[in-house]
Design a protein around this nucleic acid. Structure first.
Lengths: 254, 254
DNA sequence: AGTACATTGCGTCATAATAACACATTTAAA
DNA sequence: TTTAAATGTGTTATTATGACGCAATGTACT
């Protein structure tokens, strides 16, 4: 992000002042829920991938752009979940160091040295189709198990936690998996996904029944190969029904 | 808001640029879900009560301030639900007229003539305890039945709709009523509240059972007086259990 | 005063959803 | 060949939900 950030700050008149976007990008691999995090060399703390909002772009569009840039994945599941605007969420000291590092003149640099409010988006992407892309040679971008997230800058940990909370709640309102699993998957895989997000064991048999009743999966006439123990059946999502349920919601409640 | 708005614009260096807060304030009265709306004299369209964010205030605090100013009610149920930031959500023409009306010099007025992103909050308040307070003599503030909301400025209708959608979804996740009903209420009243929000008829008997099972209401040894037909029993919320359920959520789902 | 009517209080019953668990089958590894 | 770990396919008990019945209460009308 370094070069690009410098560019933005030097042309800050084209960007929404005091407002940023931070993305919590979730992926699933090796039975782990992973989060895409960024680290700038020489900085001990990691951060969420984020960006700024061009004046001529809707905030949702800006978020999509950030996501595409970082993951190379299209048609991403992306949802705004909260906006963070505590006064103390900024770190003038840190920002000043960034400006120094980027060799930005003071008049331009002022733009960054204010309180920034940030809009949080979370995304669900297919781990294997994702190509994490650093925006320059000084940046590291990496999938990190959500259980082993290191120290993050500013309030990014709070943002991440809130994203996960939201995801957990929305698990009851919408189907999930289409964006996180490969096209063909097994029931134990889908269950692991749910268990990992919820941090809770579920009963195999009840899980199968519930998913089946939702009617979003199709059982394929094919088994997973090269696995230990009994080969599990493969399933795929019925995209049409999946989208329908996604639109109308799962639990009616009242 | 007029005088105050002028004040803010003229001292705009103390406020977060390009960012505002809009509040959808819900109340319940006469079996109607009402929304608190504002109209400035000479302007045919109504708007949501809103405000700006002082640089030294958290956005949540700013929202609370706006709400207290408008309703005089304390301990309000207030929740951020979404942030709106389409490019075209602003209306330069309208803003220019506001500036002219407020007699604000051009250099100061520029502050308002940019794209504003707005953070939406919705609130649930006790209709009878609320004293709608115009911020000056040119402003009208009124409770309006949500089914009869007139034309609103900018994207305020979209914001209102989204607030109601969110409220409907959150009805399945949390108890409601404590902030919208008087201390003592009848079951039909509570049911009407739910029916009005959901825009859907519910079965009396099933409703009673469900609410009772949640365990948030206490049946009082008292009946409502001065009513047509059979006098219904009065209930009150068990605040302790209510807060507990509010905190832990209603439906576990998975 | 008597009756009709709207509304409340307190049920029932059939069905669906959920939680807890049993058992046989498949496959790798011992 | 046996064992262990996983999968496929059930059952059963409990709880939640949806649809409805009926008597009691109090107003309003004749």
């Amino acid at each position: 992000m370094t070069k690009k950030l410098k560019d933005i700050i030097e042309n800050n008149e084209n960007y929404q002042p005091g407002l940023s976007i931070d993305c919590v990008i979730f992926g699933f691999h090796d039975n782990q829920l992973k989060v895409l995090l960024i680290k700038v060399r020489d900085n001990p703390k990691w951060s969420l991938p984020g960006g700024f909002i061009p004046l001529d772009e809707d905030i949702d569009t800006a978020a999509v752009t950030i996501l595409n840039d970082r993951t190379g994945v299209d048609g991403i599941f992306l949802r705004q979940f909260a906006t963070f605007g505590k006064v103390k969420r900024n770190d003038q000291h840190f920002d000043a160091k960034v400006l120094e590092y980027l060799q930005i003149e003071e008049s331009k640099g002022k733009w960054l040295l204010r309180r920034f409010v940030t809009i949080g988006y979370y995304a669900l992407v297919d781990f294997l189709k994702t190509i994490p892309r650093p925006s320059n040679e000084h940046e590291i971008i990496e999938w990190i198990d959500h259980k082993e997230v290191p120290e993050l800058i500013l309030d990014h940990k709070e943002i991440l936690d809130k994203a996960l909370d939201t995801l957990r709640i929305e698990l009851n309102l919408m189907p999930i998996g289409y964006n996180l699993l490969p096209e063909k998957f097994t029931m134990p895989e889908l269950q692991k996904l749910y268990e990992t997000i919820l941090d809770k064991k579920l009963d195999r048999r009840n899980f199968l029944r519930k998913i089946t009743n939702i009617g979003i999966v199709t059982k394929l006439d094919e088994k997973k190969s090269n696995v230990a123990h009994k080969a599990p059946n493969l399933y795929s999502f019925d995209k049409e029904k999946y989208d329908e349920v996604l639109k109308n919601g799962l639990n009616q409640g009242w």
